[in-house]
Amino acid sequence: MNISSIAILFGSIITGNILLSYYLGMCSFLSISRELKSAIGLGVAVTFVMAITTPLNWIVYNIILVPLNITYLRFIVFIMVIAGIVQILEMIIERFSQTLYYSLGIFLPLITVNCAILGVNLFMIIRQYSFINSIFYGIGSGIGWLLAITLLAAIKQKISKNILPKGVEGAAISLIISGIMAIAFMGFSGIIPIN
């Protein structure tokens, strides 16, 4: 009996949002969320990398690491695969869209060390997803992250002119917004029926 892939897709976007319920990818989330445009750009890049690396690492893990009995090296191998994909993505973006390249600027190399991507890859292994499910999980988690960062950036832009108490501006207000968003996202749990 398999959990249907669609449930995994929606689950990973909403109720099991990689950022709002597993806290992964917070660093770039907090630092880039000031600007809506670059937030969307980074979100798309992350989605893209997740969608490629999750099934790729599934193959690497199940075809190379498991038969050789070297699964304890998975951290190194996964992060290297991710680094390679990010490098390629960086070259492609630089060639095709100079504006996007400049707006993302220093954040692109940071995708390698974005916890969300490695996190999704490790969760995929721990939850023993099948290959098909890992594709859906990768895409879903990416979209979920994109959704969360876009919403946060939009909300922050909206309140940017408001006067906040001393100490709340910056990180604290972002965290409060994320907390409220997390509760809202959790409200969807149970919406996908079992079986």
Partner: peptide
């Protein structure tokens, strides 16, 4: 093992 909400 069997299915749970998020994984096995």
């Amino acid at each position: 093992s069997g299915p749970g909400l998020w994984g096995e």
